[in-house]
């Protein structure tokens, strides 16, 4: 079994688990250290064990959240747009979006790329706060511990529908049910 070729193709055959399955190590940049075939009589076993360890370490990695600076983090407006914008980075949101938003009685309206949007503001559920997390020193590896910081905070979300008026059946409105239901499912029960 030519293990290094497999790394190149980004797929690993995982025999170490309960059933044979193909495992993808997503976004792997660095290959796992090549296996030293010390026991040349049973090379496969060493390889499989090594793969298994690799996967375990992927489960053992943690992502720390730096929250100490949260007090000084800027409060920002956040908008959930009904389209996928293929971009991560700066945008003149206040100049284009905020400046042209209109507040109607039951909805807000704006246009984006020539399309009419209707939206409304939602507050974070009681006892909850909005955080935007940003990865620092991104390694691109699944096996190493990662760190994210709180880059901004928010207490309400403006969500936009494409042309349809905001209403209580909008999925994002329904999703806001979750924290209260979670409290019922996870809160302590009486003895």
């Amino acid at each position: 079994m030519e293990i290094q070729n497999l790394f190149v193709s980004d797929f690993l055959i995982d025999f170490g688990h309960k059933e044979p399955a193909i495992t993808v190590f997503k976004r792997r940049r660095r290959p796992i250290q090549p296996i030293t075939h010390r026991d040349w009589r049973k090379p496969e076993i060493i390889e499989f064990a090594s793969l298994f360890t690799a996967r375990m370490s992927c489960n053992s990695s943690v992502t720390r959240v730096h929250v100490s600076s949260v007090g000084q983090t800027p409060r920002v407006p956040v908008h959930l747009m009904p389209c996928e914008i293929e971009h991560n980075g700066p945008a003149q949101v206040s100049q284009y979006l905020t400046a042209t938003m209109k507040d109607r009685k039951y909805e807000k309206t704006v246009s984006f790329r020539g399309r009419g949007l209707k939206g409304q503001e939602l507050s974070c559920p009681q006892g909850y706060t909005g955080l935007v997390l940003k990865e620092i020193n991104k390694t691109g590896s699944d096996q190493e511990d990662r760190t994210v910081k709180v880059s901004s905070v928010f207490d309400k979300v403006t969500y936009w529908n494409l042309e349809t008026a905001p209403n209580s059946d909008d999925t994002i409105v329904m999703a806001m049910d979750w924290p209260e239901l979670a409290e019922a499912i996870h809160g302590p029960v009486d003895d």
Binding site: H87, A91, R113
Partner: peptide, 28 residues
């Protein structure tokens, strides 16, 4: 990101062509 101010008609093919080549892609 935003393409043009509302002053420009987005449905106009000249504006569309320019955005297709120079602005980030947006999917609806």
């Amino acid at each position: 990101v935003f393409g043009y101010p509302q002053f420009v008609r987005f449905s106009w093919s000249t504006a569309q062509t320019l955005m297709d080549s120079k602005a980030v892609t947006v999917h609806w």
